[in-house]
Simulated assay, not measured.
Amino acid sequence: MKFFSQSFLYDDNWSIVSLAYFLRYPNPYASHVISCDVISREQTETGTLRTTRLILKRGNMPRWFPKQFVSRAESWLVEESEVDPFGKVVHCKTRNLDNLKVMRVEELVEFRQGQEDKTIQHTEVRITSGFGWGLTKRIENYGITRFKANLQRSREGVHLILDLLRQSRLQPMALGDASIPHVLPMHAPAPTIPFERHEERYDDDSAVPPRQGVWSKIRNWISPSS
């Protein structure tokens, strides 16, 4: 078994970071995600919200892996989350449902309100392979390496959604306005957008957004001018 953990600090408060995390699909940094569907949602007696989502992801097997053991490079995952709005904590567990003998992946993510109105994300992953044939350690090492790379892209996707949420609070949007994208294309290439940390807070909803804000960049990315 291989184990990896990492913590990360967002400069935004817990509410907006948690919202961005659950809205992260689709985004151009997660083109390997084919679908994401809610299959159950309930409010517990203590006031927390439990949600189960079914996610289909596309992946590439390494060249050295015997192709006859995996019929397709796609995998179903189940994501089980619980949101505690009173304690300001999100717990999320994701695990794969198929190809378990080749690789079993279990990811635990926690978002917790930190000091100075910031948010702490702690991620843990356990990767286990029961494949054998002298490839167990190689498969587990490959899984950890891929997870680390995807973790960085996942944060970039969350940062993109955070920027979109900030911009949506700064400028009015008319219903049915076709000039503003409501859903990001699932398989479009990632735009070049700087993801510097934001220390400012927006208390005035009437403030005018920057001329080259995220919405403008997204519009230019989706509908480039000729």
Rank of each mutant, 00 (worst) to 15 (best):
F4D: 10
Q6M: 10
Q6H: 12
S7M: 06
F8D: 06
L9F: 12
D12R: 06
W14I: 04
W14L: 00
W14H: 03
S15Q: 13
I16C: 05
I16A: 04
V17W: 00
S18Q: 03
S18P: 08
L19N: 08
Y25T: 13
P26S: 06
P26N: 01
N27S: 14
N27R: 08
P28Q: 09
P28I: 03
Y29K: 08
S31C: 07
H32I: 05
I34A: 04
I34W: 06
I34D: 07
S35V: 04
C36G: 00
D37F: 10
S40V: 05
Q43F: 06
T44E: 12
T44C: 08
L49V: 14
T51K: 06
T51E: 06
R53A: 04
L56Q: 12
M61S: 07
P62K: 07
R63P: 08
R63K: 15
R63Q: 14
F65G: 01
F65L: 09
P66H: 05
Q68E: 12
S71A: 15
A73R: 11
A73I: 09
A73W: 09
E74T: 09
L77V: 04
L77D: 08
E80D: 15
E82S: 08
V83L: 13
F86T: 15
G87Y: 13
V89Y: 04
V89F: 03
V89A: 05
V90R: 03
H91Y: 08
H91E: 10
T94A: 13
R95E: 08
D98H: 11
L100I: 02
V102P: 02
M103Q: 07
M103H: 01
R104F: 01
E107F: 05
F111Y: 02
E116L: 12
I120D: 08
I120L: 15
I120A: 12
I120C: 06
H122A: 10
H122V: 10
T123V: 12
E124I: 06
E124R: 09
R126D: 12
R126E: 13
I127M: 05
G130F: 04
W133H: 11
L135Y: 01
R138C: 02
R138D: 00
R138F: 00
I139Q: 05
I139K: 00
E140Y: 03
E140A: 05
Y142W: 14
Y142H: 10
Y142G: 07
G143T: 00
G143D: 06
T145G: 09
R146Y: 07
F147K: 01
F147T: 03
A149S: 14
A149F: 11
S154G: 15
S154A: 09
I161L: 11
I161H: 06
I161P: 05
D163E: 15
L164Y: 03
S168G: 03
P172R: 01
G176E: 03
D177N: 12
A178K: 04
H182I: 11
P189T: 02
A190C: 09
I193F: 03
P194K: 12
F195I: 07
F195K: 11
H198Q: 14
E199T: 15
Y202W: 15
Y202N: 14
D205F: 15
A207L: 07
A207D: 00
V208Y: 04
G213C: 06
S216K: 11
K217F: 00
I222E: 05
S223L: 01
P224K: 01
P224R: 01
S225Y: 02
